[in-house]
Amino acid sequence: MSWLEKCLQRYKPIVDDWDAFMHACQMPLPRAIWHNPLKASADDVRRLVAARVPEAQIIPWQTLAWRLPPGVKPGLWPEYRLGWIHGQEEVALWAVPLLNAQPGERVLDLCAAPGNKTAQLAVAMQDEGLIIANERRWDRLVSLRHNLERLGVTSALITRHDAARFTWLDGTVPKTPFALGGHGFDKVLVDVPCTCEGTTRKRNMHRRHSVDAYRKSVVQTQKGMLRRALALTRPGGLVAYATCTFAPEENEGVLNSIWPHVAEVVAMAPPAGLRISPGLAAWEGQTYRDDVRNAWRIWPHHNNSGGFFIALLRKLPEPSHMEPATDGHSVAAGGGIS
């Protein structure tokens, strides 16, 4: 048994075709590119890509994106350097379209680097409105800024702050999931740090040390980020929660930690051609709230992609009275939400 297989063995009960899954996890990941309408016309880019890579396949469920054959390196093309196109993992293209960001909205991207999804947001909003692109790590701010500038984005404010302690635009801190001291965001994207097991096709997992130990610590971080994201969202606003891991603790388990009266996981209709699996109802003895099944699990062997998990949550209106918590959730002293 390979090291990778040992690593992923715990998911055998939830994978429909183990051999196909393991095979897919060890194959090189196809590259994908998308057109940037902020800098070039769709017709121009369509013709350029067709001339450069005739074998490039249009990705049917994206506005204008292509899957490239192995070995093609678009990062060296003039069109890439000029910001007419951008490269991104195909499966990761999904998070932003689900949010349906519109021009003029206020959108928060809590874990923004390297800026791929932030740029997608800016394109969806036609670079009109306000995007807060937050990244805590110094070393990742450089790639975030570079990508957004190359793609011609002017609507993004890049910030460096702890995502689980982010504030509203006026700098005030949410005290409860509903208290809107400032202005809530219309949409929030929470593409959290995770164990990245779904990226085995582009990274060597052998280099990762102690995934189990890291998972235990990162789950708390993920819960903190999602709760803060919901606290910063206006009632009726949407939060997209995404990871690139298979671990239910980091996916359904994090969604399950949200109070049902704070947000609901929205049902989403997958487009034709994209094969998704619903979120898990239970894992290792823990049963999750029913609407967690509305989340999408995207397995590598179903769409020749990386592994991905995404859920869309809608912030609910503040209830007229707060019922006492009976499920172990509590509002922490000092204003934090736990």
Binding site: T154, S155, A156, L169
Partner: peptide
């Protein structure tokens, strides 16, 4: 920097880039 007119700094949060330089 040039930025969309809706943009303002957020008090207390470090700003890395303000639109495009």
């Amino acid at each position: 920097w040039i930025a969309r007119s809706e943009m303002r700094p957020i008090p207390g949060i470090p700003t890395g880039a303000f639109g495009m330089m």
